[in-house]
């Protein structure tokens, strides 16, 4: 089974002539870890929005876990995202007024499925935080008081809780210095493997590709030349 399968995808920004994305074919197998290289402004955010279901393409299909999400209604796409996808962004991933632990638990309040798959949600969260090397002393601190590195690890734990089948990480390491990037990617990959999740890791920094079994450039799969506005 594929985790993600894009066929004939075309997306155009409103009031724009040229297409921003034109992807004939792109697939990620279940549990596969893929590095997607793309400079900023190359339609990357747009692609992630489409995968997350907050935007719909002009044509083509986006099958996630076998189902075409472009055919779902808005609220069903929101539901699907909550149930099956974990996101990690560049920075400011957390609600600053919640503790690290409560931030990790958030997906379980939005998705019954992830709460059930997490089992004892609280135990799952502390286990993930421990695995991601976050000291218990910082679990109950407001997220705003954590360092950037700590925040990114909390974000990873949140993306992983309840074992979603798909992880999407958008430049998750660009706010970190080089040694920490290394450590973060290692931890992320280990946890993704443990959870059996497919990982789409998007970055402009090709040096990070070394960690991944498959590396693809967005420019290679996207026929559209237009840049994001």
């Amino acid at each position: 089974m594929t985790a993600l399968s894009i066929v004939d995808l075309v997306y155009r920004w409103p009031r724009q002539q040229a297409a921003c994305l034109d992807i004939p074919r792109f697939e990620i197998a279940a549990g596969e870890h893929v590095f997607l290289h793309g400079p900023s402004g190359g339609g990357k955010s747009t692609l992630l929005g489409l995968l997350g279901g907050v935007a719909v393409p002009e044509r083509g299909s986006i099958a996630l876990l076998g189902g075409d999400i472009t055919r779902l209604a808005g609220h069903a796409r929101d539901r699907f995202r909550a149930d099956h996808i974990g996101f990690i962004f560049q920075q400011f991933n957390l609600l600053p007024w919640l503790s690290a632990l409560d931030n990790v638990l958030l997906p379980c309040t939005f998705s019954t499925r992830r709460r059930q798959r997490a089992g004892d949600a609280h135990a799952a969260a502390t286990r993930l935080l421990t695995h991601l090397d976050l000291a218990p002393a910082s679990w109950h601190k407001p997220a705003a008081e954590l360092s950037v590195g700590q925040q990114q690890r909390v974000a990873a734990a949140r993306a992983l809780i309840g074992r979603p089948e798909i992880l999407i990480a958008d430049e998750p390491t660009s706010a970190l210095d080089a040694p920490r990037q290394q450590i973060f990617i290692d931890l992320l990959l280990a946890e993704a493997t443990a959870a059996g999740a497919a990982l789409l890791f998007v970055s402009h920094d090709e040096r990070l590709a070394a960690h991944f079994s498959r590396k693809i450039a967005l420019a290679d799969i996207n026929r559209a030349a237009a840049v994001e506005p």
Binding site: G74, R81, F110
Partner: peptide, 9 residues
């Protein structure tokens, strides 16, 4: 962030 977690508009 809430949107990414599955909150609808």
């Amino acid at each position: 962030i809430l949107r990414a977690l599955g909150a609808s508009p």
